[in-house]
Amino acid sequence: MRTWLKSLLVSLTFAGLAQAAELRPPAQATAGSPFSIASSGTGDGTFYLIGPAQISKRKVNLGGEISVQGHEVEQAGTYTAIVCADQCTSVHFYVRPAQASRLSLLVHPSRVRVAASNAISAVAFVFDRFHNLVLTPQKVDFKVVPPEGAAISQSKTTANGTAWIRLTSARKGGPAKVRASIGDLAEMRVVQQVASDACNLRIKAVPGPKGIAVETEPVRDCSGNFVPDGTVVSFTKTDASGKTTVDAPIKRGVARVEMAVSGPARISVASGVVNGNELSLGGAR
């Protein structure tokens, strides 16, 4: 009986000594902000903090507060705190993103044809100063400033850190400024609204030094915007000498070529997949 009792006491003593220290993290931790983790137990121990992007380790005195520096918790996410004395104990806690301090605005495309329905998308991402996506809903104000006319504003609340809008391009070409803001934070992008395909492409011929000069009327799209300079206009002349083609870029709104003509000739014009009128020279015009 005495032997049995002795064995029980020894076991309880060792069990008491081997009881691990406990950790109590704060209910809410914020990225980049220092905080403390309460610990139980006595003596020295080793503290490990394992986060989404970093690990730290140091000696601590058990039974007191273990302070965690702000730079150790810059990434939001789930962290694991471990303290080891005779045994190791661990605890998980979540570090939430800090206050919104950065806005990323993705606007696509950088060029868009005029009057293109829902062709522009603007997506705002809200980050804190440590590049953590801020997941709590934030109100983002979008504002679109067309080259002419009144600005359009729209507010959207972020979901999972993002807010987005779709826009139809204006009928008038030119740069449209797309702005997103949260309080003082603001980002702006520019979308070039460019002319669409040529519309009513027409040519005329006038006598020139090398034969005839054929030029287009000012080339515009169906909304009346000038087709940008550099756009290629293909002239094709067919006469007795064969066929002649010249790919001439538009310069100051018109494309122009000079062609030698022998006898009756037909001249046609095209730009991309758009055909223009046809001229007959040396006969009925």
């Binding site: 550099g230 290629v232 000498s241 064969g242 066929k243 002649t244 083609t245 010249v246 790919d247 001439a248 870029p249 070529v257 062609m259 030698a260």
Partner: peptide
């Protein structure tokens, strides 16, 4: 856009 090269007398 330069040079412009004309293709003439195709046959």
């Amino acid at each position: 856009a330069d040079p412009v090269i004309a293709v003439t007398q195709q046959r």
